[in-house]
Write a protein that binds this DNA or RNA. Structure first.
Lengths: 165, 165
DNA sequence: TATCTAACGTTATATCATAACAGTCAAGGC
DNA sequence: GCCTTGACTGTTATGATATAACGTTAGATA
């Protein structure tokens, strides 16, 4: 894997802007409280790390950052925080990459699809409304009761196609 | 996880019938040759193991069976055979389960979605035509060039819902 | 048959993830 | 205020999944 680096704000403009970060953190705090959960320092900082990252981060990458900042240094520290975020709709797990990414649209329930660029490794969260509807349909005709779905697409983002051309 | 066991042919009638196995193996052989690849003994046996399994199998489960039958006993043996099958459209990787399953419809290119039952752990391969079209659409409107996609749904199969009721 | 390449099996190691337990802290009842 | 209670944190230890690298074997081809 030889990811290209497009620099800040290029691949994932949705959530990498510094201005958005604090707004999303505040939103997250509110949302967590509403669900009776606490956005503790580790959790908050973990979300912040994901928000500032381009593409998705592995649990151990997150862990490294956390541990250099005085948080715990063992895997469960990262996994717990990440799972918390996922459970509360503040982050997503990207299974194909064994990695996590901040949710670009917290605040409303939604089904997301992820567009993973093979060139620059960026992950874009796309609205999966129509995809999800089609999947519901397919599940239903198989007599399957659908709870959750993972939709991950691999290909090349527009930025990388342009720079390759 | 406490998977229920429905017994043979119950959850995954598509490909667990013993009659189908030999037919699919023959088909696989033909297909492999057509692509200039060889369905060697390990590969053939690996496919057979997947075909006979209910639900998906982890690489180490496959490895264990292989090694008791005189094949190699180290992880690469299983991973190589499994990756070969996936690459040649004879099997699918189910990322959510870290597992593999035989393709229920080899012989024609298709995009598949997987319906994973949380109760009995079965994996059903559903036709993802419409889902795939919707995903193409979503990717296109994001300027993303889509190569491959993973679509995995988690829920409850009809058999388990019936037996729960 | 000589040669070449794909496939195999091995050792070793990398990478990802969780179980279990002890100490700490925040919130609510008294 | 003080204590109880449950959630949270950090640790040790281990489990589970996956791949790199290399020498050997076997099949295809000339």
């Amino acid at each position: 894997m030889t990811p290209q680096d497009h620099g800040p704000g290029f691949c994932c403009a949705d959530h990498s802007g510094a201005a958005n970060v604090t707004a999303i953190l505040t939103e997250a705090e509110t949302r967590a409280r509403a669900q009776g959960a606490r956005l503790t320092p580790v959790r908050r900082r973990t979300l912040e790390i994901l928000l500032q990252a381009h593409g998705a981060l592995g649990a151990y990458e997150v862990l490294e950052k956390l541990s250099t900042e005085g948080f715990g240094s063992q895997p469960p520290v990262a996994y717990r925080a990440l799972n918390f975020l996922v459970d509360h709709g503040l982050a997503h797990r990207i299974r194909r990459l064994n990695a996590f990414t901040a949710c670009a649209h917290p605040g409303h329930d939604h089904r997301a699809a992820f567009l993973i660029c093979e060139s620059c490794n960026s992950v874009t969260e796309a609205d999966a409304g129509a995809v999800s509807a089609a999947l519901d349909q397919a599940a239903q005709s198989a007599g399957f009761h659908l709870n959750r779905a993972t939709i991950e697409a691999v290909g090349q983002c527009s930025a990388c196609r342009d720079s390759a051309a």
